[in-house]
Amino acid sequence: MHELSLTQSVIRIVEQEAARQGFATVKTVWLEIGELSSVLPDAMEFCFQAVAAESPVAKGAKLEILRVPGTAWCLDCAQSHPIAQRFDPCPACGGHHLTVTSGEEMRIKEMEVA
């Protein structure tokens, strides 16, 4: 359940931004979560409701998760390919010499604040 710590980090960033940019409440938080990252979006949403309830800034906020598909660069065939999981072979050459280029994101993208 590392989603709990990750959610606490999200709320910490929200509160820091509230102090820095002078807003009182956040209505929506958009996260970018890669499909290859270690985050389970359902668990994150579950934790978010619990953690946000304790925060004066984030109380009642909505969480929106944008999934980022996985892509990898194949070192053997020098092309970029979509991959669904880390251990997927290169769809073109079948090799495993892949460097993940997207899909590992765990970012706060945007917030709607008031």
């Binding site: 820095r20 970012r107 993208k109 917030m111």
Partner: peptide, 23 residues
């Protein structure tokens, strides 16, 4: 603080682009 701000009624959007694990 030169963010992508614009208004939606009483609320506004701000771009954060910060890694959740940044801390």
């Amino acid at each position: 603080h030169d963010h992508h701000h614009h208004d939606h009624g009483d609320s506004r959007l701000i771009a954060i682009e910060q890694n959740i694990l940044a801390h």
